[in-house]
């Protein structure tokens, strides 16, 4: 894969995945400290799975985005719907639909505590569906950005030259 042909791409992927995991753990309030028993990671099995899958997909998406941006700059004009929609889907999946992240984001943009209680209840109720939508949007994002990278990197068809001099 073109995006992963350099070592830094793997570093970006790992850092991105770990950062996303840390953000989700913080946002979900999974890491708890109790005076008597110390630190605990309190998350259900489905929450743990969601966290790992979303963080891994985000880690995979990040080097693709970086490559797509740098290649697109190098070959200005070679654009596609995937070039725009890929990052959009990636952002939407993390901001709207990730039930682990939504409460912290909504609080950050000014939702009140009592409003969030109702939002949290709805998010709990729809958590499986929203997590699946999140993962699907991340996958769509990866596919679209991959296409953009491939389109930008495709070699143009060489023009035939006859080598004949004009007389």
């Amino acid at each position: 894969m073109i995006a992963f042909d350099r070592p830094w791409a793997y570093a970006i992927a790992v850092v991105g995945a770990l950062s996303m995991a840390a953000l989700l753990v913080w946002s979900g309030g999974f890491l708890q400290y109790y005076a008597r028993t110390g630190w605990e990671f309190d998350a259900s099995l489905s929450e743990r799975l969601s966290l790992v899958v979303v963080a891994t997909l985000f880690g995979a998406l990040l080097p693709l985005e970086v490559t797509a941006l740098s290649k697109a700059r190098a070959a200005a004009g070679v654009g596609s719907a995937g070039g725009v929609l890929g990052p959009v889907f990636g952002i939407v999946s993390m901001s709207c639909c990730a039930p682990l992240l939504a409460p912290a984001l909504l609080s950050f943009v000014g939702f009140s505590g009592t409003t969030l209680l109702n939002v949290n209840a709805t998010l709990h109720e729809l958590s499986t569906l929203l997590t699946l939508v999140s993962i699907a949007l991340l996958l769509v994002s990866i596919v679209l950005v991959s296409r953009t990278v491939t389109a930008v990197c495709a070699l143009p068809t060489p023009r035939r030259t006859t080598g004949q001099a004009a007389h």
Binding site: Q32, Y34, A35, R36, E40, P103, S107, G113, L116, V119
Partner: peptide
């Protein structure tokens, strides 16, 4: 709640405007 528990963490304990506690005081485990 809007003032002292903006992220709506639950359980939450509030005592007379002097103390607030978010989460359980000990591990449910």
């Amino acid at each position: 709640i809007d003032k002292y528990n903006p992220q709506a963490k639950w359980p939450w304990l509030y005592i007379n405007g002097q103390y607030a506690q978010s989460g359980s005081g000990y591990s449910p485990g």
